[in-house]
Amino acid sequence: MGESPVEALYEQVRAAVPVAADHAPPTLLQVFPGIRVLALRTPTLPPAAHTNVYLVGPDAGPVAVVDPGSPYRDQQTVLDEVIGGVGISRVLLTHHHGDHVGGAAALAERWQVPIAAHPRTAERLAGVVEVTQLLEDGEVAFSWQAGGATCVFTPGHADGHLCFEIGGATIAGDMVAGLGTILIDPSEGDMALYLESLERLRARPQSMILPAHGPPIPDGHAKLTEYLVHRRMREQRVLDAVPTGGGSAMIDDLVATAYSDTPRVLWPLAERSLRAHLVKLLREGRVRETLGRWSR
């Protein structure tokens, strides 16, 4: 399996928007009872430069490790040193993107533990990371005397995306971010499903959201509402940019109009999101596409 379109785009954006080097050593922090986090450097989407690795379970271990995404040996060594003090029972993956799975295979091999993920994530990772345990919506992925991690299926950003609920906290993967943005790329994601998944999470009991990038989000419902409002605003801007009355426009023209509030250096990223919105609008019969030109 070669580099995915999403990962190629991340690389393009990193080249255009370099992130300042951060040489501070990763620090293990308690963010919720039974949940600790270690932010490791990964090739992710700027302005983020790290992916949060969550250690779930009792303080004395063993723990489940969620999204060991760093491919860098120095970062993997830090994680190994932490795990050496508590032990590990399994690796859990929220989805298949490289900044979430970059260290998963090496970690599982070193510690001889299984990797668990949704079946669609397993399919995406075939030949790259061997998923040995399949997880479904509502299943308890890992449990200990004081709690457990329950799977919540949240497709949209990726077709096999899972969140993990642990008491009053939700490890949310790339559903929302504490730093940066969430890309919905039509090659691997689905805007309609993503919005449905945001609604599904918001309909569940209030919880602290623990994102893959950035700090914890104490008011999870408020953040989910913020994301829904923003995506609907952007969808309306995309729809308004599509000509009516017999006119039509190419993708580049639509990006310039619908994302005029976005720095031009980020327009390649904006184009992918715009295409995801257009796919949704096309399915709903609200826009038309003819030979690459869009109209209403």
Score class of each variant (00 low, 15 high):
residue 1 M to E: 09
residue 8 A to V: 08
residue 11 E to D: 15
residue 11 E to W: 10
residue 12 Q to H: 14
residue 14 R to S: 08
residue 14 R to A: 07
residue 18 P to T: 08
residue 22 D to P: 03
residue 23 H to M: 10
residue 26 P to Y: 14
residue 27 T to D: 11
residue 33 P to E: 07
residue 35 I to P: 01
residue 39 A to V: 04
residue 43 P to I: 02
residue 43 P to M: 00
residue 44 T to P: 11
residue 51 T to V: 10
residue 53 V to Q: 10
residue 54 Y to S: 05
residue 58 P to R: 01
residue 60 A to N: 09
residue 61 G to E: 02
residue 63 V to Y: 02
residue 68 P to E: 04
residue 69 G to H: 11
residue 70 S to Q: 03
residue 72 Y to V: 00
residue 73 R to M: 08
residue 81 E to M: 06
residue 84 G to S: 07
residue 87 G to L: 03
residue 89 S to T: 13
residue 94 T to M: 10
residue 96 H to K: 04
residue 98 G to W: 01
residue 99 D to F: 15
residue 115 I to T: 12
residue 116 A to I: 13
residue 120 R to G: 00
residue 120 R to C: 02
residue 122 A to C: 08
residue 130 E to Q: 14
residue 137 D to A: 15
residue 139 E to V: 13
residue 140 V to P: 00
residue 141 A to D: 05
residue 146 A to L: 10
residue 152 V to L: 14
residue 153 F to P: 06
residue 155 P to R: 12
residue 156 G to S: 12
residue 162 L to T: 09
residue 170 T to F: 05
residue 173 G to H: 02
residue 177 A to K: 09
residue 180 G to C: 10
residue 181 T to H: 10
residue 187 S to C: 09
residue 188 E to V: 13
residue 196 E to Y: 08
residue 197 S to Q: 05
residue 198 L to G: 06
residue 201 L to E: 07
residue 205 P to M: 05
residue 210 L to M: 07
residue 216 P to G: 07
residue 216 P to T: 04
residue 216 P to W: 07
residue 218 P to C: 07
residue 218 P to Q: 04
residue 226 E to V: 03
residue 226 E to L: 13
residue 230 H to F: 14
residue 232 R to K: 12
residue 238 V to C: 11
residue 241 A to C: 07
residue 241 A to T: 09
residue 246 G to R: 05
residue 247 G to E: 02
residue 247 G to K: 04
residue 256 A to H: 03
residue 262 T to H: 06
residue 279 V to L: 08
residue 280 K to M: 15
residue 280 K to Q: 15
residue 281 L to C: 06
residue 282 L to N: 14
residue 283 R to E: 15
residue 288 R to L: 13
residue 294 W to L: 03
residue 295 S to I: 03
